[in-house]
């Protein structure tokens, strides 16, 4: 479906994308994860034909993006990370305008637009002014806009950013539905767990390079190898640390006033066994959880795992 080879993008001195290689198979949902400035948006813009690459090739179904722009515009649906709307248009007219930009005949438009609005659950807002929609609704509207020409490949740049948890769930449902419709989807985010739920494959991008890649299970297994766990005892902090030191798979114990953090490189089963051991040592435990890492940490762990 999509094949990126040796893609390089330089903004003057800054190298935003540095020798990027990627293959996305038809029907998959591919997640781009990476910290701010990793080059996700840049890569996606180049794919959508909105930025020239410094070098390298992007092929979609075997066609070079830069040479077959007409054909590619048909194949790609793009949703940018930031976008605006025309304030004097109603939802129906907004969709009609974009249907027009893809030269869809007038008489086919109402049915098409209705079915698209149905998918993103905005059918009831047909006659509202676009400007009056909430952020989440605008995001969904923009997604349905990118579907008007029935593209095979959707490039969605952080479609869930700025949405509340409920809206995120809705967005995920919509994406799953699109996948069942046979679309290939590339989606970016800087929150890994969010992508993990819907993606079939994940690529971790940092400094314009694909740092790690694989199915969700593969990535998760690697993450498991080296995670930070947090344990909060009711009392007996000293005893807890002592017991922890005797346990397998534990490195780097850090003691704080009311909790302990440690790096753990065992599996989930080993983690639960660890907890059982501590409880049987008669230390009262209030909480035991994985420390919510930001992407930087997750990323460090993933690449750290690579080196071993």
């Amino acid at each position: 479906m999509l094949e990126i080879k040796n893609l390089v993008k330089k903004y003057g001195m800054v190298t935003a994308v540095n020798n990027f290689n990627l293959v996305v198979k038809k029907g998959s949902i591919y997640g781009f994860v990476g910290p701010n400035g990793a080059g996700k948006t840049t890569t996606m813009k180049i794919m959508a034909g909105l930025l020239p690459a410094t070098s390298g090739t992007i092929r979609i179904d075997g066609f070079d993006v830069t040479e077959q722009s007409k054909l590619l515009k048909q194949k790609i649906g793009y949703m940018p990370d930031f976008f605006g709307v025309y304030d004097d248009l109603k939802v129906m007219e907004y969709m009609d305008f974009y249907a027009g930009t893809y030269y869809i005949p007038y008489k086919e438009r109402p049915a098409l637009i209705n079915s698209l609005l149905e998918i993103v659950d905005l059918a009831h807002k047909k006659d509202a002014y676009v400007d009056s929609l909430s952020r989440g609704m605008k995001q969904r509207l923009c997604l349905s806009r990118s579907l008007v020409h029935d593209p095979d490949l959707l490039i969605l740049d952080e479609p869930a950013s700025g949405l509340d948890p409920r809206a995120r769930v809705e967005m995920k449902e919509i994406l799953k539905q699109l996948q069942t419709m046979g679309k290939t989807i590339i989606i970016s985010s800087h929150i890994l767990p969010e992508l993990a739920e819907i993606c079939t494959e994940i690529g971790i991008i940092d400094h314009g390079k694909l740092a790690a890649e694989g199915t969700v299970q593969e990535i998760m297994r690697r993450l498991e190898k080296n995670r930070i766990l947090q344990m909060k005892p009711l009392k007996h902090m000293d005893k807890l640390c002592q017991v922890l030191q005797e346990q397998p798979n534990i490195v780097d114990i850090m003691e704080s006033t009311d909790y302990v953090e440690f790096a753990f490189n065992g599996t989930d089963e080993e983690a639960s066994r660890l907890l059982a051991n501590i409880i049987s040592a008669e230390i009262p435990i209030l909480s035991f959880k994985e420390k919510e890492g930001n992407l930087e940490e997750i990323f460090m762990r993933v690449t750290g795992g690579d080196e071993k």
Binding site: A48, K73, Y78, F83, Y86, Y98, T101, H149
Partner: peptide, 9 residues
């Protein structure tokens, strides 16, 4: 809105 217009046909 320009990018949205430029990606169209």
């Amino acid at each position: 809105t320009l990018d949205l217009l430029l990606v169209t046909k």
